[in-house]
Amino acid sequence: MEGNKTNSRRGFLNVLLGGTLATFFGMVIYPVIRLMEPPKLPEADISSVAVGKITDLKPDQSKLFKFGRQPGLLIRTSEGEFKAFIATCTHLDCTVQYRSDMKIIWCACHNGQYDLNGLNVAGPPPRPLTPLEVHIKDDAIFVSPKA
């Protein structure tokens, strides 16, 4: 009888102590874990980015520009047409470039290749590049997300 009583009292105290410790631990660990998760920055909705003048690019030339927090690639094809893409390779995130010698978009990291419509045609990239819309007003070039 007597032993049982002490046992249940001890059990109760153990639960109390364990519960307190667990709560305390949770109180400490929760904010720590939440802190490590970087806050989402409000993504500025990009409607349109000015990328310079038509005369900046001769046919068969290209340039990289800032499209929000991502790099964009603007190409003027040999035919004089303007094309733009998000320049982030769909394989592992490297930044692609236009190769005028091969007439392709090329990723140096693992030799990924895209055609001038952004289609992945060789190497490891699993998906096409994200295309962007090019508008020309007078002689200024604007790039915006594809609707």
Binding site: L64, T95, Q97, A108, C109, H110, P124
Partner: peptide, 23 residues
């Protein structure tokens, strides 16, 4: 971040075997 990746991007040598296998 707004320059094209240069050729010759390599991990440190002790990650190379895993990286090459993935390729």
């Amino acid at each position: 971040a707004f320059q094209a990746a240069p050729a010759g991007i390599k991990p440190e040598w002790y990650f190379m075997f895993m990286f090459q296998t993935l390729k």
